[in-house]
Simulated assay, not measured.
Amino acid sequence: MAIDPRDLNALRTPLLRFAHLQLRNTSLAEDAVSETILAVMEHPDRFHQQSSLKTYVIGILKHKLIDQLRRGKREMRLTDDPYDERSDAAMVEALFDSKDHAIGVQPDWGDPVQTLERKEFFDVLQLCIDKLPAKTGRIFMMREWLEMDTDAICKELDITSANAWVMLYRARTRLRECLQISWFAQVPS
């Protein structure tokens, strides 16, 4: 099957955004995306249409990013998250009362399958991920999108497993809060 280069060109921006979030380096992200697009164009026969072209290309990009991380070609070093630990404590404190019970009623997020079928949801999710502090967003993406295990993430980022779990908790908490405000409170039709 022939793959239309215009379709790949349309995917370039989301691929770059995803690669940049992982690598935090524009030129390395562009290289990874270029290698991905080149791989797709060199072997169009490998795309069997069992998934969408976007899903197929993102799968290839994930492998390119993992390979690059494993080779240690990164030239940058992540700094600590640019927010203060006290802000996390305040955020968690605000969620619970003095008896450690959740404050307020948990919102009804409706039918998750229906939500996941909406393209707009993924646009809002991407905006929420982009709002995460750099290191927190990166560890979330490594775990949930690249499907790396905790040991590999800890080795790659030179952190302890306890630190990784705390950062993943922070990422999920902030994403939940952002999605509640930006998506579920809007009651999309």
Rank of each mutant, 00 (worst) to 15 (best):
K135V: 05
L95W: 08
I129C: 02
D130C: 06
D149C: 13
K54T: 14
I3M: 03
I129S: 02
L127P: 00
Q50W: 01
L38D: 00
S189F: 00
D4P: 06
D108F: 02
E42F: 00
V113R: 06
E75W: 00
L28T: 06
W145F: 08
L28N: 05
A185M: 06
W183F: 07
E120C: 07
V124P: 06
P107C: 04
T26G: 00
S51H: 07
L11W: 04
A152S: 10
L61E: 12
I3F: 06
P133K: 07
R17W: 11
E117M: 08
E156V: 05
Q49K: 03
P14G: 15
A10H: 11
A164S: 15
D81C: 13
D67G: 06
V187P: 12
V40T: 02
A89Q: 13
M142I: 08
K54C: 12
A185I: 03
M141T: 14
D149G: 12
T26M: 01
V166K: 09
A102G: 14
R143W: 01
R172G: 05
S52W: 03
R24H: 15
G110M: 08
A90L: 15
L78H: 10
L21H: 13
I129Y: 03
D97V: 02
T79S: 09
L127I: 01
L69P: 01
A2Q: 09
I153W: 15
L28D: 08
I139M: 09
A152N: 11
H20M: 13
L53P: 06
R71P: 01
G110Q: 04
L78S: 09
K54F: 10
V166I: 04
V187K: 14
A39P: 02
H101Q: 13
L132A: 04
M142S: 10
P5E: 12
H63S: 13
L16F: 12
Y83K: 09
R138K: 13
H43I: 00
H43G: 02
S161L: 07
R170E: 00
R176V: 09
S27Y: 07
E117Y: 02
T13W: 10
T160Y: 07
P14I: 10
I66G: 05
L61F: 14
R143N: 07
L168M: 08
L53W: 09
E147K: 12
V57L: 15
M76K: 03
Q22E: 14
K73L: 03
H20E: 13
L8W: 10
A32W: 05
L23G: 11
